[in-house]
Simulated assay, not measured.
Amino acid sequence: MSVWLTAAAGLAILAFAYIRTFCPYFSDDCAYMLRSLKLGIRLIKYGKSKPFYSILECFLDAVKRQPNKIFIHFEGRAFSYGEMDLQSNKVARALQAEARLKEGDAVALFLPNEPSFVWTWLGLAKLGCPAALLNFNIRSKSLLHCFSCCGAKVLITAPASFICYYRLLFCSGETGLLVGEITRRSPFVGYAGNKQQTEKKRLYDVMKKGDLYFNTGDLLRFDHEKFIYFQDRVGDTFRWKGENVATSEVADILTLAACVLEANVYGVKVEGHEGRIGMAAVTLKEGETFDSADVYKQVVSYLPAYARPRFLRVQPSLEMTGTFKMKKVKLVEDGFNPALISDPLYFLDPDQKTYVPLTEEIHGAIAAGKMKL
């Protein structure tokens, strides 16, 4: 018996040593999978409960049990359950009286990350009004598009599911396209009012005949420890600060400036930063000089901070492909180093509130991480 116990103990020690050496995150992975499993079971239970127990009902029960307990901490202030309930009641009454809202009316929320966002949503829930939550960073055409396609009758703004499982489709080396299988438990409803864009995001017969996947457009890579990192976006978009930037939208805004004739927008790598920062090559109208103040005014007025091109390159003409599309690859490779580019370069300086000439000193400060982007 002692021999078997000794052998079992030895095998256990060997297994433990193997896991510690080759799977150092095994225990963390197991803990995460256990939490995910528990969450999935909870979601299934909530979905099957009769009658359905909503977030609003959960909140109101908490108000009854503990009205004085702190519900939200925000920038040094604290809001109790009772205070949030009172504020949401005020919102509900005001919207009912002034906006004539009734149950079923969709409302768009365009609010920053602050307590008023929560109590406004709660007020709408009390009225039975579904809320379309708009990204507070978007501006101009993007905001108009989101509001027009969400079906909302009212826009409220400030004064001034189930776990989805993803796979990587490898296209070259360690970089792969992130796709998610579309199933009953992880559906892809699509883009509101845009069937064509919805269909573009669907991939058929990916792993086997008859399956259906969602194309995220994100390129990811694995490192040697199997951690996943975002690499880039596919198509005419790039990502900066966790947000997707549509190059055509930025180009449209740049051409609003009186001096700009054409704009070719793309993203460039910055050492120490994930994703790509916005840059644009522009041509000027005949007889015009670059008006840095006007260009700055347009991008700040109509683009969210993450979409504003931080670098501009003024060229005599833009290179086109045989099908009259603007070439971007060479521009992306060139980057924004003034020592290597003869064209005039400009940098969006938020402190001076204009585009300033991009000097080697500015470039060096950015490369060294001394200048915040």
Rank of each mutant, 00 (worst) to 15 (best):
M1P: 02
S2G: 13
V3T: 14
W4A: 11
Y18W: 15
R20H: 12
Y25T: 12
C30G: 12
L37N: 12
L39C: 07
G40M: 14
I41E: 09
Y46E: 08
G47C: 00
G47H: 03
L56W: 07
K64T: 15
F71G: 01
E75T: 08
A78V: 01
S80N: 01
E83P: 00
A94E: 13
A97D: 09
A97V: 07
E103V: 06
L111A: 04
P115V: 02
T120K: 06
W121S: 09
I138H: 07
L143Y: 05
L144G: 12
S148K: 13
G151V: 11
I156A: 06
P159N: 09
R167L: 03
G176C: 00
V189Q: 15
N194T: 04
K200I: 00
T216V: 01
R221A: 11
K226H: 09
F227K: 11
G235D: 10
W240R: 02
E274N: 10
A281M: 00
T283C: 06
E288P: 02
E288Q: 15
D291H: 03
K297T: 11
S301P: 01
L303V: 00
F311R: 03
D343G: 03
D343P: 07
A365L: 13
I366S: 08
I366E: 06
G369D: 04
K372I: 10
L373R: 07
